[in-house]
Write a protein that binds this DNA or RNA. Structure first.
Lengths: 122, 122
DNA sequence: TCGATAATTCGTTGTATGCCGAAATGTAGC
DNA sequence: GCTACATTTCGGCATACAACGAATTATCGA
């Protein structure tokens, strides 16, 4: 019951749902999610921590950045089902769709300029 | 997003999950659920109200009793998927299993004596 | 080494929520 | 009508939690 509740509580917040939807098509660093949600970095970090402890996301550190992604390796069956259900439920949501457009914009910006987000020296 | 959040928030409480699992095999009146959860009737009523407003359960009044059941008729696809997912996730939970045994006990008691719960005059 | 940036942790604050008892509502039987 | 019971609503408290700013840690480039 504790594990299930960790998942359902993780789902019970709009910003965390937006994060999960944002990760559907690939990993994102914390600063990108922060920009998307327009929240303080501390707040986003805490949301990601909750998603991590619920087994819904994994993370990877690269230089100054920490990239989060949906839990894919060692996915507990429960976590996999949970992710599948919530992403399907969010599929047609206007907020999620709008976020997806903004994320695509971020992708284009990153590809136009050199490397990661906020490239060191323009 | 509002509807999805109503569902995920409804899922984010142990007692509400126990209620949903208790309704898996048929309707239950409020007093039976109250006995199962060992909570104040006011508390149970509020939980049921939340489940109702999330579209997860329906209710039916019969005499003094109000029977709740999983949303089955006019089930919004979202609600149907949500119920299917959560019941599957709860399937092997010890608390839910224990509840199921206690509910079977309640059923046997009801069938041994005349009508509904707490029969008027034993 | 120093300064800038990314991320997390910590402490605080305002709001949301779970719980209860008391009161109100509705129904059944006397 | 009156009483008893089932349920809901209301008002309250206590806890949980989302949000922030400040402080901390870590990494990179100058």
């Amino acid at each position: 019951m504790r594990k299930i509740l960790a998942v359902t509580k993780a789902f019970a917040d709009e910003n965390r749902l937006r994060i999960l939807a944002a990760l559907e098509h690939g990993e994102r660093c914390v600063c990108e999610i922060t920009e998307l949600l327009e929240l303080a970095p501390a707040t986003v970090s805490k949301h990601l921590s909750q998603l991590y402890h619920a087994g819904l996301v994994d993370s990877r550190k690269e230089g100054r950045w920490v990239y989060y992604r949906l839990a894919d390796e060692d996915p507990s069956p429960a976590a996999r089902d949970a992710i599948a259900w919530i992403l399907n439920s969010l599929r047609d949501d206007p907020v999620v769709r709008s976020d997806a457009e903004r994320l695509a914009q971020i992708d284009r910006t990153e590809k136009a300029l050199p490397p990661c987000p906020v490239p060191p020296r323009g």
